[in-house]
């Protein structure tokens, strides 16, 4: 029995991303493709998303010109690939406030947004620091926070302090403070609805970029495999590793159940197809009675 279907939807990509950004310490190891994706969780009574991408009107030209981000598509086109529209989405879990995750709230007019309180409060603190500490403000757009003000006014923004069980039935939020960002969050779907789930999926946000973060060579410390954190952390790599351990424990250490959203290799682990726009649709699991969108 499965309550929710889960899809990872690519909405643009960078063809050549330096591997050291993905995998801590992987210097001079070339480039990997970095897809940008969000996740759709569809149940009987709810359509939820993990992150909402960014708005090309605001960032598109800069990203395209300077950083090689290609083939951005509107959520309307991306969600249509699985038979949904942005107006169908009632809940959005924002894993963190970076522009490519929180930068398109306006395209989801009926959704309520959940974000960690710490992600907002530490941002306010970081903004107050001297210019020489500006690194800590990287990748966050004040415009996204401004739009958050509007959501709060409309009572469509919920700040969460730490973990939150059953935010929707069988869906939990977990925090990873001072890791990739100040208040990063991951989402756990217990797809059998059980407290001790045998069918759990972890939607990792940017706490894990790719499967290599979960399982990379441990030769340097004389073990077969080990966790290696992502390259970017305003908190610490230690906290990333601790969060990874907790995520893995929630899925019984079955690495394929921790879903990274910047991972091209999802195509090797799950059924998928390329849309007419050249973007990948990956089907993580299907609820009872749901039809495949990639067959």
């Amino acid at each position: 029995m499965a309550d929710y279907s889960i899809w990872v939807l690519e909405y643009c990509y960078v063809s050549k991303y330096h591997k050291s950004g993905v995998l801590y310490g992987a210097h001079n190891q070339g480039y990997v493709k970095l897809p940008y994706c969000y996740v759709v969780i569809k149940g009987r009574d709810h359509v939820a998303m993990v992150d909402v991408g960014y708005n090309d009107k605001a960032y598109g030209k800069v990203l395209g010109d300077r950083f090689g981000v290609e083939n951005w598509r509107d959520p309307k086109a991306v969600l249509a690939e699985i038979g949904l529209s942005p107006a169908d989405v009632d809940t959005c879990f924002i894993s963190h406030a970076h522009f490519d995750h929180f930068g398109n709230v306006e395209d989801f007019p009926k959704a309520k947004f959940y974000i960690q309180e710490r992600e907002i409060s530490k941002w306010v603190w970081a903004m107050s620091l001297p210019d020489r500490m500006r690194w800590m403000m990287v990748a966050v757009d004040p415009g996204d926070i401004v739009r958050g003000v509007g959501l709060a006014a409309e009572k469509r923004l919920v700040t969460v302090d730490g973990a939150m069980e059953d935010v929707l039935p069988g869906i939990d939020l977990h925090s990873a403070p001072d890791s990739h960002t100040w208040g990063s969050m991951w989402v756990t779907v217990r797809n059998d609805g059980q407290k001790q789930s045998q069918d759990a999926w972890v939607l990792a946000g940017d706490l894990v970029y790719q499967f290599d973060n979960l399982k990379s060579s441990g030769a340097v410390v004389d073990v077969d495999t080990m966790y290696t954190p992502v390259g970017l952390a305003v908190g610490s790599q230690t906290n990333l590793i601790l969060a990874t351990e907790e995520m893995m424990s929630q899925v019984g250490y079955e690495a394929r159940r921790v879903i990274p959203i910047h991972e091209e290799g999802l195509r090797d682990a799950f059924p998928s197809r390329i849309s007419k726009d050249g973007l990948r649709v990956t089907e993580i699991c299907l609820a009872d009675g749901e039809n495949s969108k990639v067959a």
Binding site: V14, H18, K61, V62, R66, F67, F99, A139, L232
Partner: peptide, 25 residues
């Protein structure tokens, strides 16, 4: 402020230097 932005003149809202998209270009 958005109207006054000019990315190539260094007037831009997001510092992309270390962002997910900060690849080698």
């Amino acid at each position: 402020l958005e109207a006054a932005s000019a990315p190539k003149a260094g007037l831009q809202m997001v510092d992309f230097t270390h962002a997910c998209c900060a690849c080698a270009h």
